[in-house]
Write a protein that binds this DNA or RNA. Structure first.
Lengths: 207, 207
DNA sequence: GCGCCAATTTTTACACTGCAAAGATCGCAA
DNA sequence: TTGCGATCTTTGCAGTGTAAAAATTGGCGC
């Protein structure tokens, strides 16, 4: 009520003024600071300045809020992917390597969000919105291999193997780096690590 | 007190008779049934038939119990790895592929334990016992590549790249299969999937 | 302009959780 | 037998998620 004067006017506001978006921002804060293990619905509500039961109406329960947040994560993930591939130029192999490095960079820059998207059971992937954005990310990967091999991986077994292998490689590196299990890589200075990762991706592509 | 007569005598028993081991078994049950997200210390205590504060003395807190359980997981993981490699015969490449398939099979057969070991922040990897067993698993991987390339990966950059790539590939496939994100693979019948996975591992090794 | 409706938010309540502290139990050694 | 220390239970407390009822308020028909 007070801040509705100080902030730019948001959409239609009943009592708060786009509580849904505010809660999503609060949830990401909560996620970043406390991790998925320490994530709390009441903490989100407190950050948003509303009662602890307010989120219910917009997201149902805690997992509902996390599901919506995961969808936001996949949207952002897709943005990063398209951007880094565009920056990599026209060469299909360079674009593919850039995609792999982008995957890892996204994980390192959004560790808890990444864990929510890929390693948690709390986001509900039967949710339509989440399923859609997640699928778009997979399609981007398919497109990258399609450009590289000149075929549609959905109709070409070897190309599909490339897709699965590339994905698993990027994902495995991301997950092991994040969890602190792959110390050999995690302990490298950023510059060296970037070069090592690029080499791993390059070597992984046959031909 | 009652069951100490009916069960085979365990080590030294004050009140219960090896409560520590009983709690570890209960914890794995709890983990399997409720998942890491639903894991509860009180639930473990109930399964073990003791008060909810009993675990404190043996494990400190909930994360302490999970840490000990993760160590058990790595021990079992190492057993599986050595077994499947032994069954694969003498050929270094065959052994390496078997190790990758074993990695994935372990993940699929112990999904929640695997997630605890690799994707959770709840196990404390500064714990000496856990660190030791986890390191042994990594050493086994190093050994596999060492046998394949005839060099010590710790002193050979290309071989170390093989180590990292192989590990990431196996781990990425495991994690994506477990989380239900890689439907292309998850939806295959077991036989086909096994063959596809083997092909992915084979193709991933240069030469 | 006015009053009702429905969307939104708060209040209240409850069962469950992890953890800490104090008390109870019991094997064992002196 | 007695006392000690390891083990386990009881009790208490602050937080948590969720459900249900109550309260607020914008918008719509009139």
């Amino acid at each position: 009520m007070v801040e509705s004067g100080t902030e730019k006017p948001r959409k239609t506001a009943y009592h708060h003024g786009d509580l849904r978006a505010t809660l999503l921002r609060a949830a990401e804060e909560e996620l970043d600071e406390r991790g998925i293990e320490g994530f709390t619905l009441r903490g989100c509500a407190k950050r948003a300045g509303v009662s602890h039961a307010a989120p219910t109406h917009h997201f149902g329960d805690a997992n509902g809020l996390l599901t919506a947040l995961a969808a936001v994560g996949f949207e952002r993930f897709l943005e990063v992917q398209t951007r880094v591939q565009a920056e990599a130029g026209a060469d299909a192999r360079a674009r593919h390597t850039a995609a792999g490095l982008g995957y890892i960079r996204f994980a390192l820059e959004n560790p808890e969000l990444f864990r929510l998207m890929f390693s948690s059971r709390r986001a509900d992937f039967s949710d339509a919105a989440l399923q859609k954005t997640a699928m778009q990310s997979f399609d981007a990967l398919l497109g990258s291999i399609a450009a590289l091999r000149g075929v549609n991986p959905r109709e070409d077994q070897p190309a599909m193997l490339d897709v699965l292998a590339s994905w698993a490689l990027a994902h495995g590196l991301s997950d092991l780096l994040l969890s602190g299990r792959m110390l050999t890589l995690a302990d490298m200075p950023g510059e060296t690590r970037e070069r090592t990762l690029a080499e791993i991706f390059t070597r992984s592509l046959r031909d």
